[in-house]
Design a protein around this nucleic acid. Structure first.
Lengths: 181, 181
DNA sequence: GTAGATATATGTCAGTGTGATATATAAACC
DNA sequence: GGTTTATATATCACACTGACATATATCTAC
């Protein structure tokens, strides 16, 4: 599932510029998959070369000009084919857990600050997901609802675990303080 | 938290070769952070150039020769400094959820096969983590136990959610079947 | 016994993605 | 009047991934 495929996917919701594609992906699956402009713009240029999207420049008075992209029939086919090709892997890259794993090498205050940041993030996501599922989500596709529900369940579990067990990390830091004294 | 830092971290457990470092990291935080040989070997070469690790070639009769690396005092300091520098972000790149999000474009059978694979992976992790926490984990550092407990909580939540809600995805696929008929 | 898989061990390479930076306009805010 | 936020596109150095290449030894199944 490379950036090209994600762009094609975003365009199944309707025509969009690179900027709008980024917003679309962020708002939908942004919590599970990051996309950056540095990946999107070259991807769109490639897709255009391959004839998978149509591109039209739009002059705007009140905003900078933009390039609107539209899926071609070939693009729609290529998207379906790419989805079938994807293995559907679920990867996590957590520097947070790496830091926690090496807790013995960090000052307690630093560690707790990092924990607080993660907790804030988890809380925010839980709230957003709850609101979405109770509001707009009611009209969304089943796949989108499933994904949001998954996120809610997992982030809730993460939040609760961290809240209830963060005190264990004080022991880790204490161990180092004692060692260094 | 780049590969160099992870290598230094692995070496705080004792001297090791690149191959052994990979195993060490896989066995400890492998479920939250992937590392590949293609990243490790150049990282070790760099660390050696910078004087952060000491390197000695070891000739072996029954196995291929290996290069054993050891943390230098400068390396230990650099590790602590790099940890302090790390923001501790928690990123997820889930093609699984992306596929689910675009469920309407996939055949039901394909989708359910992908769900089965994820479920198997979640189950395996839950079992591994339970065993580790009840066994070796009892002697591990608090940080390592916290990380394992976090993984257990989150993967359990993921497993339970997917088990109880996978039927929602049949609706998605049915919608497409109806549309295409 | 021998064929094939698995484990040990190190490395490269093309392609892809990230984070930072650059540029420019307009609206909203204080 | 100045700062921040939003719109809009793009490039660059660097890091990482997945696939491949190479070599030896052990373990398993027939």
């Amino acid at each position: 599932m490379d950036t090209k495929t994600l762009c094609l996917g975003a365009l199944t919701f309707g025509d969009a510029s690179g900027y709008e594609i980024k917003k679309c992906l962020e708002d939908s699956i942004g919590h599970f998959l990051e996309v950056s402009y540095a990946a999107i713009y070259p991807a769109l240029a490639d897709l255009h070369k391959q004839g998978l999207v149509h591109c039209q420049e739009v002059r705007q008075r009140t905003r900078p000009d933009k390039k609107m992209y539209r899926l071609t029939p070939a693009g729609r086919q290529a998207f379906a084919a790419a989805l079938l090709q994807s293995q559907g892997r679920h990867k996590i890259r957590s520097e947070f857990l790496a830091l926690v794993f090496f807790a013995e090498f960090l000052p307690a205050s630093h560690l707790q600050r990092i924990v607080d940041e993660r907790l804030t993030e988890f809380d925010q996501f839980v709230q957003l997901a709850e609101e979405w599922l109770a509001g707009e989500g009611l009209n969304a596709q089943p796949g989108a609802r499933f994904a949001a529900g998954y996120g809610l369940a997992v982030f809730r579990a993460a939040r609760d675990y961290v809240r209830e067990n963060r005190h264990l990390l004080d022991e880790a830091a204490t161990a180092v303080a004692a060692r260094e004294a």
